[in-house]
Design a protein around this nucleic acid. Structure first.
Length: 1056
RNA sequence: GGGCCCGUAGCAUAGUUGGUGGUGCACCCGGCUGAUAACCGGGAGGUCGUGCGUUCAAGUCGCACCGGGCCCA
């Protein structure tokens, strides 16, 4: 053992620990230690390899690391392979930016192969950066060999899964309305759409009614560009619609408008006059036909049989009639399918009108809004602007378009029941994450669009014949090579695109051009990380995962994608237990974002307080599933607690070193609480108490971690260090550390402190792996394992837990606080003894505790005697308080009156009556002891304070003896202060001369207490005299004023 | 617009079946002085987001609203 620095230096300690881990290869050793033990299969939710990690990512990994470390210490062989999500549009966008590209054409010109290589470099570079950042947070996961979604074996896992979907008839292809980003020229998932306000046209349009002269349906839309695709108008059958004769600039026309909206619409169209010709319900309109106002400009519109249909989503807003373009809207396409409407989509993936769009062909749709409005001519009834929430591509921020495109889907609704059943089977922490949130999401899930028209991703392994309808899905590269007679190694685009297969019909099969949505990539993680399907042994041994944990955003993300894919592949959820965690927010509870400038980086916190404080803060600040409001105050508090842990640890070290203390060990030299196990019954009660506390703590922490309550586990540890060890045990045990001789009490104190530190560090090790490792390195015996992380999890020993003792000590601590309060009230310092303290109580528990620990209680109280008073104390007055818990149920509505009556009555009279008769009548109410609580009132010469179950009174009257002790304590304190000023060592001896001119005070001290003072301050000679004698050279002389008495003290180190 | 979660003192957090709202930090006052750039005690500080309701009694139960978060539309 060595002494340590006076305050915790995180940077130094953590650097030392990190270098120890590196040089001695501790992580690998710990893994090796558990090889062959029961496995615990964890799957890392793969972070996306772009940019740097943020506080939320740090929290995520710290939660994982803490739980993994805990399971390792429990003896499991933990599968802790890290993972990275490395494909996808975000990386393409970054590479495009680097290369200055703005469209897919640029990529194709540059060369898909070169582009893919750039994307791969980007992903790998950033993977390395992130791994380093995670290592810097003390994360122990396999970063040397992480699973990566871009490796050929991973790609095969996705291929294999798609093949399963095809075999089960769950792979579908169709024209569907999807969000597309016209810049990225690809479908994007709903989750990739970001909404914010956008200003768009808001137009009212007249659709001429078939075979009726000058009669129109009036519709409203914010997307003029979708009008070339209009095929129907929707109404509600139960709404009332008006047929209106409207007059504008002398011309009359007949308009159909929702009845409540007539005036408003006509005002917008600047009509001067109108009259309602008739009103009908919507069902009368359904089936009516109309013509497109754009049939001249968009010839395909001439062939469309436009009609009025029913749709339940119509509301009585704007005009009450809704323009339907099944090629450009999800709701529209659903109605279209039901009604058998045509679906027009004269727009391509880049948002450019196709030839079908007539005069608009070749234009970008958003730019064509004005052209469409112009083309409408007189059929444009009114034109305004509207600001509304509109979706945007999450990467490039381009407004999205809804268009009908050919995509690949997984038919999730067909497996929904199985998914819901599996959700019910999985254990969720907290429960509502599964039973409510995830359940509801899956219950409403639709087909999953898995295709993207991009480059950097897993190619969809579907080959289609150019001559017939045949298609084939390949589950492995080998299978493909065999069918094609090729030797493909990298399954990425563009290489895989060149592979063709001869079709049985004589035609040639080509791969479809699409790649997978990245959500599909990560969905395979649980079997891809085990090398499945190439290798099956590990999969059969380990799958499904014992545990995963991710943020609440992954409900619709990774929790969902994994479940869907796994049901398709194996009819079973890929995880047994899921902990859903929250988001890291700023101190105001707002999302951290670069634009707001409220981002806190993990590095920033680590630079200030170190990794372990960040870890403990993140783990303890809130329940995992709640959002975490980052707060620097909280960081500071945690830092302070860690510093206290450090102080508690270093406090006994100088004494232990001085005495060459070595803890009792087992025969093989390892330590496992040997002394405590052998000697517990005869150890002092405060030792038995802290040992009991530490064992209770361990049991609690283990249970909390099991239940995902990391916040409780860490808070319990920190509280125990602060409250039980620092504020209480260390205070009690200090005098025993100072004992000179080889005393048994001292040995027991050392063994107990050693035990406490070892056990608490072991419990804290999963959460704060550095400081605990550092402390352990200094405390361990030569034969103990090299690292704290090689120890077995200490789960607490029930035989060492003494609940009664813990309760009794609780009473003493409550007593201690009450004494301090009462003394402060009476203005009597703790240093000055009092003659007597009284504990007035009716509680056996209080009496027993104080009696059992009389010496400790007297010592803490600095009182010569403690007297227990049962029942009433004759020197005590009393007051009464109503107990609503008792009054309410019995008196009901009269409760408040009874309360008032009790408050108004004389307490002593009530008490006397109840004690005599068991009841008393107040204002006509019969009051018994359950309705009233009596408390005591102090006499004036006594100071009192409440403790749990008792009232503590101190008598602060001074006697000459007490005053003598008080002054002697004052002198001791002054001499100790002077020793400190002279910077003397604990073991140095001094000579001391105390000059007190006040005869009375000198007499109080002289003779009675000289020996005691001399011993406490390590003075070989100590004189108390009325005048200063010869003091010689050196030393220190100080004049003190103690309670108005002048005391001059000279001390000198012996041997000088 | 819908689902789930959160909203308790300046900050953070506890509050089991409804029964006079606890704790830590910060603040102020004091103590201790062989853990001392540490430690301990006390005090002050609360419209329990807002409103309505159920009840003798609501932080707790119900409804509505406000604010924040995640997700969906």
């Amino acid at each position: 053992m060595r002494e340590v620095t006076s305050s915790f230096n995180a940077e130094e300690v953590e650097a030392a620990v990190r270098s120890f881990w590196d040089t001695d290869n501790i992580y690998a050793q710990v893994k090796k230690q558990h090889a062959g033990s029961p496995p615990w299969f964890f799957v890392d939710g793969p972070p996306y390899t772009t940019g740097h990690i943020h506080l939320g990512t740090a929290w995520n990994k710290i939660l994982k690391d803490s739980i993994l470390r805990f399971r390792r210490m429990q003896g499991y062989d933990v599968i802790d392979r890290a993972g990275y999500d490395m494909h996808g549009l975000p990386i393409e966008v970054r590479v495009e930016q680097e290369l200055g590209f703005s469209s897919k054409k640029d990529i194709e010109t540059y060369g898909i192969d070169k582009f893919i290589e750039k994307c791969k470099d980007f992903a790998i570079t950033h993977k390395e950066i992130m791994s380093d950042q995670f290592r810097d947070l003390g994360i122990w996961m396999d970063f040397k060999n992480p699973y990566q979604t871009i490796t050929p074996d991973y790609v095969e896992a996705a291929w294999w899964t798609l093949k399963r979907a095809e075999e089960k008839g769950l792979l579908e292809r169709g024209y569907r309305v999807v969000n597309i980003c016209p810049r990225c020229e690809t479908a994007i998932a709903d989750s990739e759409v970001e909404y914010w306000d956008e200003t768009d046209p808001s137009i009212f349009v007249k659709f001429p009614v078939q075979d009726r002269e000058n009669e129109y349906f009036v519709i409203w839309t914010t997307t003029p560009w979708t009008l070339p695709a209009n095929v129907a108008v929707a109404v509600r059958d139960d709404f009332t619609y008006a047929r209106v004769r409207a007059v504008k600039d002398g011309r009359e026309e007949i308009l159909w408008i929702g009845e409540p909206l007539v005036e408003e619409v006509l005002r917008k169209g600047r009509y001067q006059d109108f009259s309602i010709l008739e009103t009908v319900t919507g069902d009368a309109l359904i089936g009516m036909h109309y013509r497109s106002p754009l049939e001249e400009q968009v010839p395909i519109q001439k062939d469309v049989h436009h009609r009025v249909v029913y749709a339940d989503f119509v509301t009585m807003e704007n005009t009450g009639l809704v323009h339907l373009a099944p090629g450009h809207g999800w709701d529209d396409s659903l109605v279209g399918q039901k009604e058998g409407l045509e679906s027009l989509c004269p727009v391509d993936n880049a948002g450019i009108y196709t030839a079908d769009a007539g005069i608009f062909a070749g234009k970008f749709v958003k730019d064509a809004d004005q052209d469409v409005m112009d083309a409408l001519g007189d059929n444009l009834l009114a034109k305004k602007k509207i600001t509304h929430r509109y979706g945007h591509c999450w990467r490039c921020k381009t407004p999205i378009l809804m268009i009908s495109t050919e995509q690949w889907f997984l038919a999730i609704p067909k497996i929904k029941d199985k998914m819901l059943a599996e959700i019910a089977r999985v254990e969720w922490q907290p429960d509502w994450a599964g039973s409510a949130r995830f359940h509801d999401f899956v219950a409403g899930a639709r087909d999953w669009c898995i295709s993207r028209q991009r480059y950097w991703g897993i190619p969809i392994p579907v080959w289609e014949c150019d001559a017939c309808d045949a298609r084939k899905v390949f589950g492995t590269v080998a299978e493909l090579n065999e069918a094609a007679g090729t030797h493909l190694t990298d399954p990425h685009r563009p290489y895989v695109d060149d592979v063709t297969i001869p079709c049985t019909c004589g035609g040639t099969m080509h791969r479809v051009k699409d790649i997978f949505d990245v959500w599909f990539d990560s969905a395979m993680a649980s079997w891809a990380t085990l090398g499945f399907p190439r290798k099956t042994a590990e999969f059969e041994r380990l799958w499904p995962a014992a545990f995963i944990t991710e943020g609440q955003d992954q409900t619709r993300g990774w929790f969902y994608s994994q479940l869907g894919a796994s049901i398709i592949a194996f009819d079973q959820a890929p995880y047994n237990k899921v902990l859903m965690h929250g988001f890291a927010l700023d101190a105001e509870g707002r999302k951290m974002s670069k634009s707001v400038g409220n981002v806190i980086s993990p590095e920033e916190v680590v630079a200030k307080v170190g990794v372990d404080v960040l870890r403990l803060y993140l783990l303890s600040a809130s329940a995992p599933w709640d959002d975490l409001k980052f707060n620097w105050e909280g960081i500071k508090t945690t830092n302070r607690t860690i510093n206290i842990l450090w102080n508690v640890y270093r406090f006994p070290l100088p004494y232990m070193i001085l005495d060459a203390f070595a803890p009792e060990t087992a025969a093989d030299g390892t330590w496992d609480g040997e002394y405590v196990m052998a000697h517990l019954p005869e150890m002092p009660e405060e030792d038995r108490w802290i040992i009991s506390r530490v064992n209770s703590l361990a049991a609690q922490v283990g249970e909390d971690v099991d239940n995902g309550m990391l916040h409780r586990a860490t808070r319990s540890c920190l509280t125990c260090i602060l409250e039980d060890v620092s504020r209480w045990y260390v205070q009690l045990v200090r005098p025993r550390m100072w004992l000179e001789e080889d005393a048994r009490e001292k040995r027991e104190a050392y063994e107990t402190m050693y035990y406490v530190m070892r056990r608490i560090c072991s419990n804290l090790a999963p959460f704060a792996p550095h400081i605990t490792e550092n402390i352990f390195a200094n405390l361990r015996t030569d034969k103990d394992p090299e690292s704290i992380h090689m120890l077995s999890w200490f789960a607490g020993d029930a035989t060492l837990i003494d609940a009664t003792l813990e309760a009794e000590m609780g009473v003493i601590r409550s007593f201690d606080e009450a004494i301090a309060t009462a003394r402060q009230e009476g203005g009597r310092k703790l240093r000055w003894p009092i003659g007597e303290a009284f504990v007035i109580t009716d509680s056996d528990a209080v009496e027993n505790a104080i009696t059992q620990m009389d010496e400790l209680a007297r010592q803490r109280a600095n009182s010569q005697a403690i007297t227990i008073v049962r029942g009433a104390w004759d020197r005590m007055g009393c007051s009464a308080e109503p107990v609503m818990r008792g009054i309410g149920p019995e008196f009901g509505k009269d409760g408040p009156k009874v309360k008032a009556a009790i408050e108004a009555a004389d307490a002593a009279t009530l008490k006397a009556a109840i004690e005599r008769d068991g009841e008393v009548s107040v204002d006509g109410f019969t009051i018994t002891e359950k309705h009233i609580a009596f408390s005591e009132k102090m006499p004036e010469n006594i100071f009192a304070s409440e403790m749990e179950g008792a009232t503590v009174c101190v008598d602060i009257t001074l006697t000459p003896t007490l005053e003598g002790v008080g002054f002697s304590r004052e002198v001791v304190r002054r001499i100790q202060e002077m020793r400190r000023q002279l910077d003397l060592n604990v073991e140095d001896f001094i000579t001391a001369d105390v000059v007190i001119t006040d005869n009375r005070v000198r007499d109080l001290l002289a003779g009675i207490h000289e020996d005691g003072i001399a011993g406490e301050v390590r003075a070989t000679t100590l004189s108390i005299t009325p005048v200063a004698g010869e003091t010689g050279e050196g030393g220190l002389t100080t004049e003190w004023n103690v309670e108005g008495v002048t005391i001059t003290i000279h001390i000198q180190k012996r041997g000088q």
